[in-house]
Design a protein around this nucleic acid. Sequence first.
DNA 1: TTTAATTTCTACTAATTATATAGAATTAAT
DNA 2: ATTAATTCTATATAATTAGTAGAAATTAAA
Lengths: 137, 137
Amino acid sequence: MLSQKTKYALKALLYLAQQDANHISKTTDIAEAANIPKKFLEQILLDLKRGHLVGSKQGKFGGYYLLKSGNEITLADIHRLFDGAIALLPCASINFYERCLDCKDESECLLRHGLITIREETLKAMQGITINSLVKK
Amino acid sequence: MLSQKTKYALKALLYLAQQDANHISKTTDIAEAANIPKKFLEQILLDLKRGHLVGSKQGKFGGYYLLKSGNEITLADIHRLFDGAIALLPCASINFYERCLDCKDESECLLRHGLITIREETLKAMQGITINSLVKK
DNA sequence: TTTAATTTCTACTAATTATATAGAATTAAT
DNA sequence: ATTAATTCTATATAATTAGTAGAAATTAAA
C-alpha cells in the first residue's frame, strides 16, 4: 500500500501537471485544491524537489512547478522516492537491495526467485502509469 | 513490501509443504529450520490457522500441517491474510475497499483508475506464485 | 530599505503498527 | 499423573506514520 504521504505527492503532482506551462503554484493553492494539510504538503514538496521531480522559486510569487514532463514521471519513480523498494522484500530489490538477516544462504532461498518475478511484473505495470496518463483519464 | 511476519509465514508454509504427506510439524521444528523466533511463530501459525491455510493438532505429538495443497495457496492469499489489500490504495481494492477520506468525489479521482490497473496486474502476478511453485525452484 | 509573501529548515508530538516476549490455560497421548 | 504440545491474553519496546510549530532565509515590489 502507498502511504498517505505518497498519495498526497501524487495528488500534488497531478495538480501541477494540470497547470499552464510556466505557471508557478503556491503550496497553499495545491493544499486547498488537493485537500492536503498545508504544513505536511510543504515537506512533501521538498521531498519531491530533492527527488528532482519538481523545481521551486523562493520568495514572494514563488512556488513549485514540474521539472520533468508528466510523461517522464512514472508511478514507479514516485513510489521509490517515498515508499522505497518496488520489490516485496529487500533481497529481491535492485535499487534498495539488502540481505535478509534471517536468511542463512540467499542463493538457496526459495522465496527470492518468486519475489523477483513479482517485482519485474509490478515494476513494468508501475512504469506504465505516468502522471500524464492519469491526467488524461 | 511484505512485513517480517508475512515473510515468516511464507517460510513456515514452505517448510510445511516440504514435509511428507500426513506429517505433523512442531512449532519448534519449523522455528529452527526457518530461523524464526519461536514465540512469534506461534502467533503466525495461529493466524494461518484462522486463515484456513493450515490445520493443527493439539496436545502431545500435536503440531501443524497444510490444510490445502501447495498448489492452491498463492502469494496473493498470504499477502491478503497478513498485509491486507493487494491494491496500492484502499479505494482501488476489492477485498479491502475503503473510501479515501480526503477525496471529494471518488468518481472524479484521477488516481483511482491507474491504481486499479496496477492492482489487476499485481494480483495476476501474485496469483501465479504458489507455495508449490516456490518449492520446485 | 522596508514589508509582505513565499520557500526552507529543524525540531517536536501523538498515534499506530511491527516485532516480538512472557506466562498461564488447555488439550491430548502415554 | 505426566509430558508435550497448542492456544490465549497480556505486555513491552522500537520504529514508522502523519502531522504540527515556529523561526530563518529568500525574493519581489512598494
